[in-house]
Structures are given as structure tokens and as C-alpha cells.
Design a protein around this nucleic acid. Sequence first.
DNA 1: CACATATAGTACCGTGTCGCACCAAATGGA
DNA 2: TCCATTTGGTGCGACACGGTACTATATGTG
Lengths: 148, 148
Amino acid sequence: MHDRDPAVFFDVFKEIGIIEQLSRAILEARLPDGLIAPHFAVLNHLTVRGDGRTPMEMARAFQLPKTSMTHTIKALERHMLVAVRANPEDGRSKCVWLTQAGRDVRAQAIAGLGPDFAALAQGFDVEQLRAILPVLTDLRQFLDAARD
Amino acid sequence: MHDRDPAVFFDVFKEIGIIEQLSRAILEARLPDGLIAPHFAVLNHLTVRGDGRTPMEMARAFQLPKTSMTHTIKALERHMLVAVRANPEDGRSKCVWLTQAGRDVRAQAIAGLGPDFAALAQGFDVEQLRAILPVLTDLRQFLDAARD
DNA sequence: CACATATAGTACCGTGTCGCACCAAATGGA
DNA sequence: TCCATTTGGTGCGACACGGTACTATATGTG
């Protein structure tokens, strides 16, 4: 087990798996009943990237099977957080638009997380997070590119 | 957005969520058909910590609801990778034991990951991972303790 | 234009996740 | 000891995930 041992990937991924689970719990505690992290991810994506995206566009962005995206969008539609309309530029396709309620749910979740993160920041050195963020971003991009 | 902005949590958790998804795909590509990451996690736990653990012990270790653990163990039992027997020390409880097939599946998965990680290590600076691992471990422990 | 192929989306189904209700066994206080 | 409470495990139901198969539309090649 020398310095260049690639097994460090195993340990990093293990920690990341646990942190993902814990951070998901923090997020979901701030979402209305029945909404979970993937729903929020879509609302956030539509806000940041602009709505009117197609389901396939988002499935690719999240690297999810298109059936999963169909399902997630259906749930958001049931909750009236998005509206789905035909794509005028492609008869096979649809476009997903945020409703005002959708924008509000996202904003409320983020607002609720503010105090949570502030509380965490009191017990954990935020500078360390800022320091590792570029490596995480590199790693994410690298794995993304390495996925065949 | 100054240097101590706790919003860095948001970005770190977002990257971690994506990396978790990509690394899970790498692992699951090395598992036999029908087995997914949580199944492997249990096999690995029983190998590392020693088998004979109870379902509740593992549910707590993974911070999962006990119903999820029951379900995961049932699946491993169907695949004959673990054997569940009564706990002689507690009539309410059971103990989960690895079968030889269970040990083999875990060993095979890890053996398969070796080349994967080695390939990744050729394109990504492993030293950077080694550098961030302690911070990730700290963060995991901190979030674990902070969860009420 | 005709037609083979590629692409967007969905229906269906098996499986995973997890809350609730329940039972059985253990525990602890009077 | 008796009994209330706690704890380990499971059945069930609602919903999430994702593979296969299918339809409809678009695209590219002759």
C-alpha cells in the first residue's frame, strides 16, 4: 500500500457515499412532504439553466435513464410544480416549464437550508470545504468523462 | 459571498451527490446481475467487521431504517450469499452469516475494481485524493454527530 | 420521395426504499 | 414477580428506480 495506491479511490468513494446519504437527509428535511432530492434537483436545474428544457436534456444532465426522468417529472406534475407542454420544434419531444409553485418550493427549500448550513459552519471549518471543492469538481468531471 | 459563506456546503454536497452516483455505477458494473451497491455494502461490512452481526446492528451502522435492512438481507438470502439464524443471546434477534458464495462475490467485486481504479489513477492525481480524504472523513464524522 | 435508422417519450413490470402497524421477546421499576 | 415500556424483526402498502419493449416523429441516404 504505497503512496500511489489506487485503492484510495475505494476509501474516498466510501466516505462520499455516506456523506451523500447524510446530506440528502438534510435537504429532504426542508422539502414539502412527498418531495425528495431528485425532485428538488429538477426544480433547481430548471431554475439555474432556465426552464423549457426537454426531459431527455435533463436525463442526460443528471445521467439518469430517461424512464427515471419521465417518472420524476410525472411526480412534479402531480404536485403542480411543473407544466409539461409539446415542443414546437420537435414533435417527439416535450418541454418542461416551472410553475410559480415550483419556483416557490425551490426557493423555500434553499431558504430553509441557509440556517442549517450556517449551523454546520459553526462546528466545521468551512475553509477546508472551500479547499477540497476544486478537487471534487475535478474528480466529478474526470469520472464524467471516463464513463463510457 | 465572502470567505466564510456557508453556501459552500451546497456546492460540496452537489459535487458529492454526482460523484456518488458515478462511483456507484462503477461498483455495480462489477457486481453479478441483480446485486446492487447496498447488497455489496452489507457483504463488505460482514467481511470487515466479522459476520454474525444482527440486522439492527447493520441498520444502525448504515443509518438505514430497519425495514430497508430486512429487505436487503432477504435479497442476499435469496441469492444464498448470507445465511440468517436465530440469535442465541436474544430471542427477538437474528444473526447474519456470510456463505462462501457471499465471500466470493465480495472478493470478485473488489478484484474487478482493482483494474478500474488503476485505470482511473492513470488519469487523475491520486495524491489529491489522498489529500482530501481526511477532510471527507472529518466531514462524515461531523455530519454523523450533527444528525439529531 | 422512400425507407432504414435514430431518437423522444411512455407503459409495464420487477425490485428497492421506507413509513406504519403489528408481534414477540427483553428490560426495568414497583 | 408483575406489568409497562422498550427493542428486534416482519407484513404491507405507497412510491421510486430503471430495464425492456413499444409508438411516434425526425433524420439521413439512396
